[in-house]
């Protein structure tokens, strides 16, 4: 029959229309909107009816691996001093596909040896492609991809080259947004430190006659 195909299609639209009301009735008394479980439901395989996430009142949570613009991680010691994890080794700048990272290094005025922490660190976010290579290949876990995507601005010329101050965030922030990765890295680091300490201890025991200052330096955990 001519027109049956059209009717069939309209039936599909009608079920979608009805579903949105059925869903709302099913969720009576529970929060389908503006609640964690509501969002979870709307992004699950069973989602039906209204699919909208009402940004900005509710936000679709980003997964742990989500990457936006990179940030630099610093550790805070007991006295409250900040220590950049970055050693300005330059791997991130070398691997960056669009070359949007600039690292300013410096050397100690007295010893003339390079200072590990960078003097400044720039990322041009108008070039950055959010690929995540810098975070992936950084051997010191010093640069990570941020979750903050709300960065719209009125002026790019003054604001869009991020310097070290703007890029730096504490390790606790990193642990907050990427708990699994953070814990894995910390465990690895602890294991490595333990291994090093053990090796150093063995070395110290073997060379008991020699002074032990070399072993002491070896047992400091890698920063």
């Amino acid at each position: 029959m001519y027109g049956l195909g059209i009717l069939k299609g309209m039936w599909v639209t009608l079920t979608h229309f009805i579903d949105s009301y059925v869903e709302d009735i099913k969720w009576l008394g529970r929060n389908r909107y503006y609640s964690k479980e509501g969002i979870q439901h709307r992004r699950s395989k069973d989602t039906k009816g209204i699919f909208t996430v009402q940004y900005p009142e509710e936000k679709l949570p980003v997964p742990e691996e989500f990457r936006f613009v990179p940030f630099l991680v610093y550790d805070v010691d007991e006295e409250g001093n900040k220590h950049d994890r970055c050693t300005s080794c330059g791997i991130c700048a070398k691997v960056c596909p669009p070359q949007c990272i600039w690292i300013v290094r410096t050397e100690d005025p007295v010893t003339k040896r390079p200072v590990p922490e960078p003097v400044d660190f720039f990322i041009d976010v108008d070039i950055c492609m959010n690929c995540g290579y810098c975070a992936e290949y950084c051997p010191f876990d010093a640069i990570k991809m941020d979750h903050d995507y709300e960065m719209a601005s009125f002026d790019r010329h003054a604001e869009h080259i991020f310097n070290k101050e703007k890029l730096s965030k504490p390790a606790s922030y990193y642990a907050g947004i990427r708990p699994t990765n953070y814990n894995r890295e910390e465990t690895l680091k602890a294991e490595e430190a333990a291994k090093k300490a053990a090796a150093a201890a063995a070395k110290a025991a073997a060379a008991a006659a020699k002074p032990a200052d070399g072993a002491a330096a070896g047992s400091t955990p890698a920063q």
């Binding site: 108008d126 959010n130 960065m151 009125f154 002026d155």
Partner: peptide
């Protein structure tokens, strides 16, 4: 341009 939205 009035507003810039970074990201790629």
């Amino acid at each position: 341009v009035d507003v810039y939205v970074p990201g790629c």
